[in-house]
Every structure is written in C-alpha cells, then in structure tokens.
Design a protein around this nucleic acid. Sequence first.
RNA 1: GCCGGGGUGGCGGAACUGGCAGACGCAGCGGACUUAAAAUCCGCCGGAGUAAUCCUUGUGGGUUCGAGUCCCACCCCCGGCACCA
Length: 929
Amino acid sequence: MAAKYIPNEIEKKWQEKWAETGLYRVTEDSPKPKYYALTMFPYTSGDLHIGHWYAMAPSDVQARFKRMQGYNVLHPMGFDAFGLNAENAAIRQGIHPYTWTMQNIENMRRQLKSIGAIYDWDREVITCLPEYYKWTQWFFLKLYEHDLAYRQKAPVNWCPSCQTVLANEQVVDGCCERCDTAVIHRDLEQWFFRITKYADELMQYEGIDWPERIKIMQRNWVGRSTGTEISFALDHPGVDEKEIRVFTTRPDTTFGVTFMVLAPEHPLVPKLTVPEKKAEVEAYIERSRRQTEIERLSTEKEKDGVFTGAYVTNRLNGEKVPIWIADYVLLSYGTGAVMAVPAHDERDFAFALKYGLPVIHVIDRTDGIAKSYAMAGTMRPGLKQSLEDANISFTETSDGGLYITLRGDDQIDNYIEMVRVHLLPGCWSEIVGSRWLFIFASEEGTTVVPFDSIEAERSILAKCKELEPNVRSRRTVMEMLWGLEFYRDMLFHTEYGTMIHSGPLTGTPGDQAISTVTKWMEQQGFGHATVSYRLRDWLISRQRYWGAPIPMIYCDKCGIVPVLEEDLPVLLPEDAEFKPTGESPLAYHEGFVNTTCPKCSSPARRETDTMDTFMCSSWYFLRYCSPHYSQAAFDPEKVKYWMPVDLYTGGAEHAVMHLLYVRFFVKALRDMGIADYNEPCVRLYNQGHIIAEQRKMSKSRGNVITPDEYVADMGVDTVRVYFMFLGPWEQGGEWDDSGISGVRRWLNRVWNLVLEEYTPRAENDGVRTELRRTTHQTIRKVTGDIERLRFNTMIAALMEFTNYLARIKEAGSVSQADWKEVVDILLLLLAPSTPHITEELWEQTGHNYSIHSQDWPQWDEALAKDEEVTLVVQVNGRLRDRITVPISITEDEAKQLALESPKSKPHIEGKQLVRAIYVPHKLVNLVVK
RNA sequence: GCCGGGGUGGCGGAACUGGCAGACGCAGCGGACUUAAAAUCCGCCGGAGUAAUCCUUGUGGGUUCGAGUCCCACCCCCGGCACCA
C-alpha cells in the first residue's frame, strides 16, 4: 500500500524547495525565446478572495505550460498599492495608509505564495514605494515635457463622498465608480493627459489579438463621429467674437435651424446675455451646476433651457435665430454649441415644442406619406366621394370630419386639387408629412402657401389665428399641428432623405446630401468637414493623500514649473492629517507645500494633488522587467528583451480604463522615443468573474469568500483545478463549491494510480497500440486547450485519460515499461495544473528534480491517428445504427455496410433508395421514399 | 433606446468547419466492502413507453438528406453605452 495523499504536507515541502533552489528565478540571459505572461496585479484591499485566484491560478497554468514548452517565461506579481481605500481606512481606523497597505500586502503575499505559482518574488513591484513612484512622477514630467500633460480649469466630476474629482471613465451611471455616490460638477484647475491626441490610433488594433468585445467597447468609448463644423454669424453689441461654431453630424439639415443652444458653461454666455435675461440665465446656470450628473443626464427629464436674448444668423439662408442655453448641451463635446433642427432631431423637437420655437422641415420623408385633416364644416359636400374615386384612404370622425392619408406625389397633387374645389371660403386645410403646405380659401379663390421657412411660419400662423379663435393661444404652427393626435407621427423624423426647403440645395438626394452640403459650405466659407470624439482628456488630479504627488511647483514669478528630475521623488510626508475636506491633505501640510522655485529660487508652492492610481498601473509591466533598476524607470535593454507582453489576462471591467490608458501610455512613450512598439500587449484575454450572491465579491458587500480554508481543507492543487474545471474561463459564474470534492477524488485516484504497484498480467499488442494512440490524442487535446485557454475541457480530457489508464492498470494489459512511460506523460501533462502533487509523484517514481524543468510532451500525429471509426447510419436523417469500420473504408463499402445494417434494414425495406449521403469518418445517411 | 454576449438534464458544463446531443464532474439511486459510518470501488442516471419507438438544446417559422450549430421573427438573462448634436 502506498502512502496516503496528504496535500498540505507535500505542498509546503515543495514550495519551500522551489524557493530554496530558486527554481522560478528569471533572468534575461537565457538562450530560450522569451514569453511575457502578465496578469493584472491586485489592488491592496486586504484579503485575496477566490475571485483573485480565479484570475491568477489559470494564468499560472498557462505560464507554466509555456515554460515547459521551452520559453523563458516572465510571469511576475506585484501590488497596486495607492488609492482611496487605504486613506479611507486611515480616516476610519486611525491607521496610517502606509501601514494599512503594507499589512495588507503582507497577507496577500502569503496567500499568493500559497497558490504555488511561478512568480519570481525578486521582481515584486509595489506602486506606493518611493522607489516606484519616483518613476511614476518621472513619467509625468516626460508627458508634461511633450505637451501631453496640461493644467486647465474645467467643470469636472466631483464625488462628494470620496471628496475628490474623478476621471470620466470612473463615473458609472452618474455615480462614483467606487462608492456609488451621485457625482456633481465643479469648476476646478486640474491636470489632464492629452489622451485625445491618440483617439484615432486607439481605435486601431493592427497586429494584436484582442477580444472583439473589448475592441468594440473601446471604439464606442472613443466615439468617433464625422461631421461638419459650421459657423453662424454673430453680431452682438460689445462682443468681439463674430461667429459661433457648432458641430453637427447632419449638415444636410442646416436650412432647418430655428434656434441655437449653448452649454450653460459656455464662455460666451455671460457676454451674450442681454440685461433683461441676466437674472434668469444666471439662475439656470447655477441650478445646472448644482445638479448631480444623474439629474442632469437623465433622459426622462424634460429638456429645459433659457433664452439669452441674443441671436446668430444662419449664413445659409440669412435667417436670424435665437440663442438659448440648455444643459442637454455639453460643453466638453464638439464646440459646446449646437444648431437646433427641431424637425429632424428628437431633443430639439421637444425643446421647440416646449418653448414655442418654430419647426421647419428640410428633409423629405422617404415613405412618401402625407396627412390631412378635413375638419367638419370646412368642405363642400362631395369630398368623400372624390376621395373614394381617387382611391385615397381616409377615416371619418364622429362629427363628420375626415382623417386623410395620402400615399405618393400623385395622390397629394390630386388631393390639393380636391381641396381647392371643396374648401369653403373662410376656411383652411393643411397637408403635412411628405408635403408641407396650407390652403386658404376666400371669396376670391384659394391660395396655397408652402410651409417652408420661418417667414412662412409667421404668416401662416397669423392667418390661422385670424380665421380661428381656437388657435389664438398657439405660439407656432407646429404647436397647432401637434394638437391633433392624427398628425403626430408626421411632425418629426431623423431619416436621411431628399433635401427640401433648402434654397439652392433643394432636391439634393439623401445619399449625397451631407457631402454636397459640406462641399458647398466649404466653398462659401461657412464651414468644413471635421471629426469629433466622445473621448475626453484623462483627468488625473486627485485631492487625496495616498497617491503619487504630482511633481509640479507654482511660482509667483515663473508660473508653473516642473520639479527637476534630480529632485525626484517628491516624497509624501509621513505626518499628514487625513481629513476629507475636499482638498488634498497635502494642502494643509506646510512642510510639503512650501518650497522654492527650481528656476528662480524664490519661495514657491507645490502642487498638492496626487495622481490617479491608474497612472501607477499604466507602466508597472515595464518595471517588472527590471524592478530594482535605480538609474531610470526601467533598464532599456531588459525592457527591449521582454516587451511587449505576450499574453495579458485580467477582468473586462478595465476595458475603457486601464486597458485604454496603458495603450495611450505606450503610444506616448513610443512618440518620445522611449518605446519601440505600438501596443503594450500582443494578446489579451479576459477571464470572467466569480460572483457570490449574484454580485461581484467585495469587502463592502460582505460577500467575500477567501481561498484559505479550501486550501487548508483540500490542498491548493485541488483548488487550482477546481477553478479551471468550473466552466469556460471567460464566463466566470456563481461560486458553488459543491463539486470541489470531485476534483479532490480525482487527484487521489491519480496518486494511487501512480504509486500503487503495476502488474502486467495479460499483455496485449492491440491494447498497447490503443494506449499509445489515446496518449498522443490526449497530449494533442491538452496542448491545444491550454493554448486556447480552454482549461475546463483540458481538465476533463485529463480526467478521462486517468479513467482510461485505471482500466488498463486493472487489466494489466501492457508491459511495465509501457506503463511507466504513460504515467510519466500523465504527470507531465498535469504538472502546470497541479504543480505540487506532480512534483512529489515525479520524485517518488524515481525522477530527478524537477518535473517543472522537463520538456512538455510532444504528440505524433501519425500515432494519434485513429485506425477505426464509428460510422453513424441514418435513414432519412434519423439515427438507426452505428458501425465500426476501418478508417480507410471507401465510400462504396461504407454505403454497402449501411444498407446491410440489421438495425436500419427494417426502415429501408419496401422503400426506394433515393440518395445515400456519405460523410467520411462520420456517417452514412440513406434517403428513402 | 443602441451595441455586445448568452439561454442545452436536478446542477456546473461538453459538442471541431452543419453530421452519434448531454463528454467530464456534482448531486441522486442501486450494489460491493464494513458490526456501523466515512473513505473506496462497481453499476444506473433527460422525458414518455412493457417494448418497438417517439419526444427533447428559450419560443415560433425557414433553409438542408441532416440544425444546439445557418437564416428570419419573438421572449428572457447578463455585460457595456446612453441627451455626444
């Protein structure tokens, strides 16, 4: 009887031995090809939970596999150690963020060591240590030097609970990503990185293998729109600016502009506002500033705004239109000003209706439909009959009015004639939709007035009011028409179509409208084609203590002056006070704030904000290459050796934050001549998340499950395998430990299979060949699955292989030597997944240390090839029989065998064979009638 | 609303380019061993039916000799974006 498998004993033993012998130490002088396998480093929140392990264990398996395949593998680990949690803990518990963080690291490192990964701990990187953040600051200076960092006053996202600003990416549904508090706006001087400079390049993914999903998310985030910038003429007393530019993706609708809307924070607003509107405008600005992001962005919220009293002129048609302000216009997108075309934009339409602004249609409908309402008592008898004769559809209202729907120009023209004949003097009728006109009748005859401009709107409205007291309260024609439910679906549309009511451009077909208008505007000097992005520059200032101080100095004489490189790092003072005041605790620290100007040596003040922690994680993968290098952020030779990352794994929640920032960062370094690659990582893979109680695990939700007890109970090898076996790695899922015992049982069976004595009893050449085939098929399957990160099926294949070997052993059907060989292969295939048990078994079966330095088994395609296959016999597509045939069988032979198959015979007899389909190695389908 | 991803036994999941649906494991059931239990091992395990056989991959259609896989419509779940002019 072999000794029992007691995981904890052998796991401890081997982890110690690996550490002693430096088995996983990595150097750059290896003759092997390099492979950089990177896993996102954890944030130092305290405990690692099984979610972390779910990310780390399988990536270690892949890295170990690459190592056995003959690569020099760098698979490092470190800690993302700056950030708000530490500071909040400091405020709550009175413990210094440094102490809190280092204690957490201590614990996390212990947990990480127990995972049995190949991390080379000599390369550990901790972002909150001065030896690291010195270089974070250095990168800031480089970005500043290359005009990629700038300071600007802007309305920024402010989290009242975290007491700091947030990057755009950190605002989720108008709330703080970290604490869910509603975000408000503040005007602050902040530091930004010019990520928008790389907007276009960030949408390109040439030469890299990234998940389609992430690429789509990033492209949407960058949000490139092609459009036109159009200049509207401004002539306002006391204002120097002679134009206001707007960005639009619909220049084809410019003839339909009936007002303009500026963002409330737009710098022109105070200058343009006329004295009598001043109070109202200021109140509105104040209100929108106080609103939270959710309130302001709520799509349910009714659009509101205020008139400034000023006007611009639409150069295309000379129309003078009012300037409004409204908070649905964002200062940070486009030019912060929009031309409003209520006829073809839903928001503008709602706004126009609310404030009685005119609506003029300038794009034709594509369906050719128009509507008209013949009110009871406005028509001579006989209209109904005429409509019927002309095949025009209508419905009659209870009071005898008619709702008429016209399809196509012929019906519309026909109908106009009918109205001219039937309309009673002193009445009017209108046609809306595919045609816009009003027909007025008087004793002298009928007049057809097209509704095609703001002037027409005025005169039509005046005429209607004169004729009909009921409409006298209406401010616009559109408001009048909106009153009739029947018309509503005609009153606005966003389709592309032929231009109408557009002066010289009327008639331009929809598919050319945008390019024609843009060209024409360019010729006239009214505007030009341009591109706008949803992406904003990356706001990196944080009003908190626990981050890398921004290395900048403000001097009264010299202005903004960067800290000299030789003065780095700008150290965090240890004795700051942690009170959430809305300003960085550093601002209250006299010793920190007061300094001298590096240029003129006069007294100066330090920048007291610290950097967003995403800045720290934007370059940690470079630091791993030479973690203790003191002359620079990294040793260029070593970075040249390791970069770019070959496989980067981590959660998809970083799609538009970390994963966008690192790409920006690397591109910026490349343009500075510091990097010679375009992308940080060649292949990206996002594993899913382990959730508990339907939610992501987090300390604050109190649903954290740690791996420690499972490790103590089952051994880490079991835990590693169980994570892989749960399901597809990219899928994640609800944590359920009910299956873990199955894995434990399996490893136990492996243990006994390898250690309990093998006795050949009934050696059999056929079985020997079959064993070899199965072995090579398993090597092929396992290799392919790890390569594609399909760990769940890899484990299933190994379990199957084990079950198969157990049967062989039971029967004793191969020689001692054959058995030994196949057991070795089993152990090698298992080694990346279960490094401890395989190391132990490797030793116990008489091999030299270490199994992890062995070569990955190779398969031989010829040996893996099946000699026989099972052919499925179908009759009319239904399974009737299975027959085992040699792989070399010909089509005719196969069909013959199928026809003779006893099980399918009854289904064929008495019927006529129409067709026989043969799929080699798969099936024969007999089609009978 | 828009853009992704996904609905397969009691459960997690498998199924390569359209070709045996349910691999592997959990749970369950039956058996062996045991005084007993645990552990271990063996067998069964989608549903209906004595059986032949039929039904079954969210729903409804379609293409095909053949559909979990392809096409159309719809329902549900998850993720992202959401006044971006």
